[in-house]
């Protein structure tokens, strides 16, 4: 598995997979729907899948001495790693923003503030994307467009829901909004719930993808 992961990183990663990680600094942009940052992570997955197809990587990998079902698993583990990094970066840079900017500039008019609850929201978004995209993609890795469009539409719908919640519910507009130092327990709980949802959805996605890929003809 480790060798497959190394091969993925060496031969299948599109530069955007790493470049888009830096978009975590968008949390410094005032009045911006920060959940969109996580969509860029989804977009980099799309580019990596394109690269996989153009390189004939699936056929190459299937001929290697590995179990066939480990091929999708390795690809997904690399993506999960990148998603973990973007979640971490958004959390850290959001905290830095809270520490260096005045409290009034921390308020976000376009959505929730860049705090722990945002990271929880991001985890849910990425988990939903993983569940929708990967099982469809691994049914036929030559066809990337339709699974990505379905995944992207779901992600943007969810972003819309989070923005509506920010304005329509006291939980999101007050309790989970603002600096991490305020209502820290609630924000930490939102983060943990988001991460748990991410883990569950991603695990289901792995299982389904591995099952679908067994039937794929390289």
């Amino acid at each position: 598995m480790l060798n497959l992961i190394k091969k993925e990183i060496a031969l299948c990663m599109h530069p955007t997979a790493f470049i888009f990680l830096f978009l975590a600094v968008l949390v410094f942009v005032p009045n911006y729907p920060y959940e969109v940052i996580f969509f860029f992570s989804c977009l980099s997955v799309f580019f990596c899948c394109m690269m996989t197809r153009e390189n004939g990587d699936i056929a190459f990998s299937c001929a290697l001495p590995v179990k066939k079902e480990h091929i999708p698993l390795a690809k997904m583990l690399v993506v999960f790693g990148l998603q973990g990094i973007i979640l971490l970066l958004v959390g850290i840079i959001g905290a830095v923003k809270g520490a260096v900017l005045p409290a009034e500039q921390y308020v976000n008019q376009a959505g929730i503030s860049a705090n722990l609850a945002l990271v929880g929201n991001g985890a849910v978004l990425l988990g939903v994307f993983n569940l929708i995209f990967f099982p469809r993609y691994f049914k036929s890795p030559d066809k990337i467009g339709v699974p990505f469009v379905i995944g992207a539409v779901a992600v943007f719908l969810l972003i819309g829901i989070f923005i509506v919640l920010r304005w329509a519910t006291p939980l999101y507009s007050v309790t989970l909004n603002g600096l991490n130092s305020v209502n820290t327990g609630a924000k930490a709980a939102a983060l943990i719930i988001g991460v748990v949802i991410y883990i569950i959805l991603s695990a289901i996605s792995c299982k389904l993808s591995m099952r679908h890929f067994q039937r794929y003809d390289a």
Partner: peptide, 8 residues
């Protein structure tokens, strides 16, 4: 391809 399990 069948021998190598590239196809099911």
């Amino acid at each position: 391809k069948g021998i190598l399990r590239l196809i099911a």
